[in-house]
Amino acid sequence: MAVWQYLLIVVPEDSIDSNYECIFKNNKTEFLPETDVFWENFDGNIPSIISELDQIIPKANWGNETYLNWKGSGQNEEDNDACICLSDDKSKIESFQFRIDLRKASNITDVLQSILNLCKKNHFILIDLKGEIFQPNLEDIFKSIKASNATRFLNDPIQFFEDLSKKSSDETRA
């Protein structure tokens, strides 16, 4: 993940229940928790979702039939990407996430807004890296975008790395 990308995890809205707390909020690892449990009861039109993503971000030249990837052009500051992992029989989504390149305003107004529209249409909600849940509305996730490491880096890259270095040395002393 590039430092200028903002990541959101997509899950069906009706899958969020009491399990959410133990899956996301109590995750003590450095990795994102598995989200396949959120997709167990999803019966939406997977080919339609894939087709719509194809219209938003170009399909990447890697992956396979169950690990689908999309990738924008990093050279044009359009380093947006998405990934959907399907079950072996391709009948279920196991995970869905995307990253938006915050270096260019059109990535937010065009790409992010288009993905949010896809999410609204399919009754999906979004989860950021801190485990906060958002409706697929730009206004709802804007606070998270502003507080993200990607925004901190873009606003002041030198300070971002100084803070990172300080945090690393503080952890070493502890």
Results as ranks from 00 to 15, higher is better:
Ser169Glu: 08
Leu86Asn: 04
Phe161Tyr: 06
Cys83Glu: 06
Ser18Glu: 07
Asn61Met: 03
Lys121Trp: 13
Ile108Glu: 02
Ser114Gly: 11
Lys167Ser: 01
Leu116Tyr: 03
Leu8Gln: 01
Ser48Phe: 13
Asn117Trp: 13
Thr29Gln: 04
Asn64Arg: 08
Val37Glu: 02
Lys90Cys: 08
Thr35Asp: 06
Phe160Pro: 02
Leu53Tyr: 05
Pro136Leu: 02
Leu164Asp: 05
Glu132Phe: 11
Asp156Asn: 07
Pro136Cys: 03
Leu154Phe: 00
Val3Ile: 06
Glu132Ile: 14
Arg173Trp: 10
Phe134Pro: 09
Ala105Glu: 08
Val10Met: 10
Phe96Glu: 01
Thr109His: 06
Ile127Val: 12
Asp81Ile: 03
Ile158Arg: 15
Lys59Asn: 01
Val3Leu: 00
Leu138Arg: 04
Leu8Val: 12
Leu129Gln: 10
Asp156Ser: 13
Asn64Tyr: 07
Phe161Ile: 14
Asn76Val: 13
Ile108Ala: 05
Cys83Thr: 04
Leu118Asn: 07
Asp14Lys: 08
Arg173Val: 13
Leu138Asp: 14
Ile108Asn: 02
Leu32Ile: 15
Ile145Ala: 02
Asn26His: 11
Lys120Cys: 10
Thr172Lys: 11
Asn69Phe: 01
Phe42Asn: 06
Gln97Met: 08
Ile50Asp: 00
Val111Glu: 00
